[in-house]
Structure formats: C-alpha cells, structure tokens
Amino acid sequence: MEHAVEGLPGGLRGYQILATVAHRDLPNQQAIGVQLAIDRTALTCQIDALAEAGLVERIPDPADRRARKVVVTAKGAGTLPRFARRVAEAEAELLSGLPLYEAEAFRDLVGRLAAFKGFKSESSQP
C-alpha cells in the first residue's frame, strides 16, 4: 500500500485523510481524527503537509467561525482518483490469492473493524 501512495504527502495516512476530507463532510479536524483514530498532534502534521502540497485547505466553519474545517481543493480532488485507483490495484493484488467470496468477507470484516468505536490506533497506544 505504501508503494501505491508513493508521492502523496503522509503516505497511507495522508491518503486516508485526503479521501475522508473528499468524501465526508466532517465539521473540523477533531472529527477527522476521531473518524480515522489519529491523535491530534499527528493529524495536524499530516494536514499541514497536505495543505502545503495544495491538496486540502482549512477554512472557517460556516456553522462556527471559531472552528476550522478541512476541505479538499480542486488539486486534491483531481489527485485523489489516481491514488484511489493505485490503492484499489494494490488491494486486488494482495487479495488475488483468495476466492472472491473470501476477499469480500475480508474487506467487510476489515471495514467493520475500522468502524468499531473502541478501536485504538497505534499512535494512541501507551
């Protein structure tokens, strides 16, 4: 997967953040961190790198001017499909040895695990 996102600031985490910002309307950085189980400090550095590359930007949240919302830029929206395709190809290669029903079951289980509210990322482990 790291090879698939080579050249994207932040590597795989950068890809996850860019895809989340592009596909979900989250109100602020904190919500992105909760969604992806990334601690605040690491998330800020990742978003800074994506913003410096012109892929995302922070704007005032229309609902709360004190908060900053992270949005995808036109450049980010144009860049994301290329990396999404590369990630999908890497995933297909990784799962190519499994029968289709097992690959689908694996994707489903990983998705459910990632969505599990009790999940703790490596960065949040003591």
Rank of each mutant, 00 (worst) to 15 (best):
M1N: 05
E2Y: 11
E2F: 11
A4L: 02
V5I: 12
V5L: 05
G7V: 04
L8M: 04
L8D: 08
G11I: 08
G11A: 02
L12P: 01
L12G: 10
R13V: 15
Q16C: 13
Q16A: 13
A19C: 10
V21N: 01
V21R: 13
A22M: 02
R24Q: 07
D25Q: 05
D25N: 15
L26M: 05
L26C: 04
P27D: 04
P27T: 11
P27A: 02
Q29V: 09
Q29S: 10
A31H: 07
V34M: 09
V34A: 01
Q35N: 05
L36G: 02
D39H: 07
D39Y: 02
R40C: 10
R40V: 07
T41H: 05
L43W: 02
L43R: 03
Q46P: 05
I47S: 03
I47G: 00
D48A: 08
A51Y: 05
A53V: 03
G54E: 09
G54M: 11
G54L: 10
V56K: 03
V56S: 00
V56I: 11
E57R: 13
R58W: 08
I59L: 12
P60Y: 08
P60V: 04
D61M: 00
D61Y: 08
P62W: 02
P62H: 02
A63D: 12
A63F: 07
A63I: 03
D64F: 09
R65E: 10
R65M: 08
R66I: 10
R68V: 11
K69I: 00
K69Y: 02
V71W: 04
T73M: 04
T73Y: 09
T73N: 01
A77K: 08
A77D: 11
G78H: 00
G78F: 06
G78R: 10
P81G: 00
P81T: 04
P81I: 01
F83I: 01
F83P: 00
R86F: 09
A88L: 12
A90T: 15
A90C: 12
A90R: 13
A92M: 10
A92I: 05
E93I: 15
S96V: 07
S96W: 07
G97F: 00
L98S: 12
P99Q: 02
L100D: 15
L100F: 10
Y101I: 08
E102H: 11
A103V: 06
A103C: 04
E104F: 04
E104R: 03
A105L: 02
F106N: 05
D108W: 11
L109I: 04
G111L: 03
G111T: 10
R112S: 03
A114V: 14
A115Y: 07
A115T: 03
F116Y: 14
K117V: 14
G118T: 09
G118N: 11
K120M: 14
E122N: 10
E122P: 13
E122C: 08
E122T: 13
S123F: 11
S124W: 06
S124F: 15
S124T: 15
Q125P: 07
P126D: 13
